[in-house]
Amino acid sequence: MQPDSLPVVFGYLDYRTYLRDWFDAKKGRNPRFSHRAFSRRTGQRSPSFLADVIKGRRNLTEDAIPKVCVALGLEKEEASFFDALVQLDQAGSTREKNNAWARLAASQHFREARRLEGEGFRYLSHWYIPAIRELAALPAFRAEPDWIAGVLCPAISVSEASAALECLKELGMLVQAEDGVWEPREVRVTTPHEVAKLAVQNYHEGMLGLALGAIDRFPADERHFRAITAHVPQSLIPTLKSELNSMCDRLLELVDGTPEAGDEVVQVHLHFFPLSATAGVTTAAKSRKEMSK
């Protein structure tokens, strides 16, 4: 961005950061421009409206978004992108956030500016892309959408397999050797920090959904489920996490250390989560006491 130019909204994934940079640039061009002046442009009574939004003290309402877009001087496509940025930040559910991301990723300007980051998000958000990357390590692998679509469990469409192959190639995770064979490569997946949590959440939700279906999809000798339900002190939770992480490392050592070639792809998922509130017993006891009065 040139010193005298305003920032381009397509280069952002955080609308508050964009507003901050826009105001700083506007102030640089016109030292007399103020938060109060912006409030007047948007019909807001509070002179600190913009400062409060930038600092996260308040959100933009649906009514305020188009007025802010006008004050920013955004064209139709830019305004639509800005609206999606607001939804990505303020949406209350994973589905709404993913819908907002899809709108952002559909923008040609965004794809041109952040192509690899967008592919990184796509990699984590679709369970079959990491699976295909592991599938590529098998001797029998064929980089053909028809073959891949039929091998994965559950099966995916040919178009999904084709798009997944392109994603892996874009990320450098699937590279064609001199002999024409496609081989996997170890590449760090980069996702925009603004949506990294969403991408990881998509990954775990996708895999856990597959685990649920696997109970009926595979016979017992092809899968393994083991679980415990226990009461624990909060002080033990970091130790439990450390033990599970160590188990993951040990399983990877076993996989990497085996001399035999792989012939299938599996998913191993280790997790734990609360089944009660921390103060659940106290709250229940308090409720019983109040009811007996």
Score class of each variant (00 low, 15 high):
residue 208 L to Y: 04
residue 250 R to P: 02
residue 189 V to T: 05
residue 274 P to H: 09
residue 229 T to H: 12
residue 201 Q to L: 04
residue 236 L to E: 12
residue 283 T to P: 01
residue 186 E to R: 13
residue 215 I to T: 11
residue 261 A to F: 08
residue 264 E to K: 15
residue 227 A to M: 13
residue 200 V to E: 07
residue 212 L to E: 13
residue 193 H to Q: 04
residue 266 V to T: 13
residue 205 E to W: 00
residue 246 S to Y: 03
residue 269 H to A: 13
residue 257 G to W: 06
residue 232 V to M: 01
residue 285 A to D: 00
residue 191 T to V: 15
residue 288 R to K: 14
residue 229 T to F: 10
residue 251 L to Y: 12
residue 276 S to F: 00
residue 251 L to I: 12
residue 274 P to D: 08
residue 224 H to R: 15
residue 216 D to S: 05
residue 262 G to I: 00
residue 246 S to D: 11
residue 280 G to V: 03
residue 251 L to R: 11
residue 203 Y to K: 11
residue 240 L to Q: 03
residue 237 I to L: 13
residue 202 N to I: 00
residue 266 V to G: 10
residue 220 A to D: 15
residue 199 A to F: 06
residue 206 G to Q: 04
residue 201 Q to H: 05
residue 223 R to F: 13
residue 272 F to A: 01
residue 244 L to Q: 15
residue 187 V to E: 03
residue 284 A to M: 08
residue 282 T to Q: 13
residue 286 K to H: 03
residue 224 H to T: 14
residue 254 L to R: 12
residue 209 G to V: 04
residue 200 V to P: 00
residue 208 L to I: 12
residue 287 S to F: 07
residue 277 A to Y: 01
residue 269 H to R: 08
residue 247 M to Q: 11
residue 209 G to R: 02
residue 223 R to L: 10
residue 227 A to G: 13
residue 197 K to Q: 02
residue 287 S to N: 09
residue 240 L to G: 05
residue 195 V to Y: 07
residue 240 L to C: 03
residue 242 S to V: 03
residue 202 N to S: 09
residue 188 R to D: 04
residue 271 H to T: 10
residue 198 L to R: 02
residue 279 A to C: 04
residue 246 S to K: 09
residue 194 E to S: 02
residue 270 L to I: 02
residue 266 V to R: 15
residue 231 H to L: 08
residue 216 D to G: 03
residue 268 V to G: 04
residue 288 R to L: 15
residue 200 V to H: 10
